[in-house]
Amino acid sequence: MGRESAQKETNNIIAAVTLAHHKVSGGNSFVVEAQNEEEQKQIMLDIAKAVKGDVTKTSNGIFLILKD
């Protein structure tokens, strides 16, 4: 990623919205655990709108909110 970092197009993870079965160890970002998938989606939207961030869903179902 050497070139990319020189061009400053990196994203920071602002928050992660997880479910009960996800095991997330501590990090710099804010982690919210939702009760079910519906709530997870809603919380993701709330945070994403608040920080005007982009959202990606990992293949195991965690929502990450990113912002550059």
């Binding site: 939207l45 959202v55 990113l66």
Partner: peptide, 9 residues
């Protein structure tokens, strides 16, 4: 890109 997680996007 994989930054289109929301339905709106």
């Amino acid at each position: 890109s994989n930054l289109v997680g929301t339905d709106n996007a």
